[in-house]
Design a binder for these strands. Structure first.
Lengths: 127, 127
DNA sequence: TGTATTTTTGCAACTTAGTTGCATTAAATT
DNA sequence: AATTTAATGCAACTAAGTTGCAAAAATACA
């Protein structure tokens, strides 16, 4: 228990997560894998991979769910507190490798912080 | 032009936004107003109010859309860069009155920042 | 090995937030 | 009052994500 079974679906989906910081949306993944596996399987495999701390999910600007490889997460505690960036021109979404400085909030116990930055990536900025 | 027409729907919906920082989800608003107006109207009125800078929208933890009163927004530029807080116990969502310090990101032009903090509010913390 | 058990997958149907087209009503303009 | 413009209701739709159940695949174990 606590170990991902390397089924064909798992291996295929994992191959979409490069070592970089780029994220992929579930919708995109479902579309690309549409003639290889069912969308339910995609959703469930992603769930499992996130439970095991291999990938993490977050919401993009339009409310879609994105996944990216974890670099410093464990099964039950996703420590990777970093911002995500979505380019409003080309749609690329990625994890930024900087730490977020969380404000101290009176009388509240903060457990998670989701930071989504939107703007233009380098490529689109220079067009 | 550029001014909200104070129709019955507008007045009713505006009355749901107190002077405080508490937010309300669209789903909740649609439900509460279900025998007063159509859900399409709720969506459209909220759109207009946001266009005019009276309220602002953001996504909560479960991907739902929430609205809260603007304190420092204008029609085309929502300056109010503050974090939102969602209590995972009672579900309350609110705007936090602190400034977010955005990290400097190389080679990217950041236009907006959405920060969602989740945890326990004061009430739920002390149960 | 073969059989029983558990996990994974596919499929179809469903749920739900949000949108759209269009006809109707209401408000503003002249 | 007549005309134009904007707001609303309604029904049907879209799309992301979920669920139940049966079939298939992987694992355990005698």
């Amino acid at each position: 228990m606590g170990v991902i079974r390397k089924t064909k679906s798992v291996t295929t989906i994992l191959s979409y997560f490069s070592d970089g910081h780029e994220a992929i949306s579930v919708v995109d993944l479902v579309e690309r894998l549409s003639d290889e596996m069912n969308k339910t399987t995609v959703y469930r495999v992603l769930d499992r991979l996130e439970d095991e701390g291999l990938i993490h999910s977050f919401s993009g600007a339009k409310g879609l769910t994105w996944y990216a490889k974890c670099h410093d997460c464990s099964s039950h505690h996703h420590q990777d507190v970093h911002p995500h960036f979505e380019c409003k021109e080309c749609g690329k979404v990625e994890c930024l490798d900087v730490s977020i400085e969380l404000p101290q909030i009176n009388n509240r116990h903060i457990e998670t912080a989701d930071v989504l930055l939107t703007g233009q990536c380098d490529d689109c900025k220079n067009l």
